[in-house]
Simulated scan of single mutants.
Amino acid sequence: MRLLVLGGGQLALMMSWAAARLPLDFVVYDPDPRAPAYKYAIKASDPLREVERADYVTFEFENVEWEVAEYAHKLGKLRPHLDYLRVKKSRIWEREALGELGVPTPRWAVARDGAEAMELAAKWGRAIAKVPSGGYDGKGQYLLPRERPPAEGPLLVEEYVNIAREFSIIAARSEDGDVYFYPPAQNYYVQGILVWNYAPAEAPPEAYRYVEKILEWRRYVGILAVEFFEDRSGRILVNEIAPRVHNTGHWTLETDASQFENHVRAAVGLPLRRPRALAPTAMVNLLGVASPPIRELERLGKVYWYGKAEARPRRKMGHVNITADTTAEAIAKAREAMRIIYGRKFPELVLKNYGSRQ
Results as ranks from 00 to 15, higher is better:
1 M>F: 00
5 V>P: 01
7 G>S: 03
9 G>K: 02
13 L>N: 03
16 S>A: 14
16 S>V: 05
21 R>H: 12
21 R>S: 14
27 V>A: 15
27 V>Q: 10
29 Y>K: 09
36 P>I: 07
48 L>M: 14
49 R>E: 13
55 D>F: 00
56 Y>S: 02
57 V>Q: 04
60 E>M: 07
60 E>S: 10
63 N>P: 05
67 E>S: 15
70 E>L: 15
79 R>E: 04
88 K>M: 15
89 K>Y: 14
90 S>D: 15
91 R>K: 15
91 R>M: 13
99 G>L: 08
106 P>C: 09
108 W>N: 02
109 A>C: 08
109 A>H: 08
113 D>C: 01
114 G>E: 00
114 G>M: 00
118 M>S: 02
120 L>E: 07
138 G>Q: 05
143 L>M: 06
151 A>W: 00
151 A>Y: 00
153 G>N: 04
157 V>D: 07
160 Y>N: 05
161 V>D: 07
165 R>I: 14
165 R>A: 14
166 E>D: 02
167 F>L: 09
167 F>C: 06
169 I>H: 07
169 I>N: 06
171 A>S: 09
171 A>H: 08
172 A>E: 02
174 S>C: 00
178 D>Q: 03
188 Y>I: 15
188 Y>E: 13
191 Q>Y: 08
194 L>E: 09
198 Y>H: 15
201 A>C: 02
202 E>L: 10
202 E>K: 11
205 P>S: 09
209 R>L: 15
214 I>G: 03
214 I>Q: 07
217 W>P: 07
219 R>H: 13
222 G>C: 02
225 A>Q: 12
226 V>Y: 07
226 V>N: 06
231 D>G: 10
233 S>N: 14
238 V>E: 13
245 V>A: 12
246 H>E: 05
252 T>R: 03
253 L>D: 04
261 E>A: 02
263 H>N: 04
265 R>K: 02
276 R>V: 01
278 L>D: 03
278 L>P: 05
279 A>G: 00
281 T>L: 04
282 A>N: 12
290 A>P: 07
291 S>N: 11
295 R>Y: 09
295 R>G: 08
297 L>I: 13
297 L>K: 12
303 V>K: 09
305 W>T: 06
306 Y>Q: 07
307 G>S: 04
311 A>V: 07
313 P>V: 06
318 G>N: 03
325 D>G: 15
327 T>S: 06
331 I>Q: 13
331 I>L: 12
332 A>Y: 11
337 A>G: 10
341 I>M: 12
356 S>Y: 08
356 S>I: 02
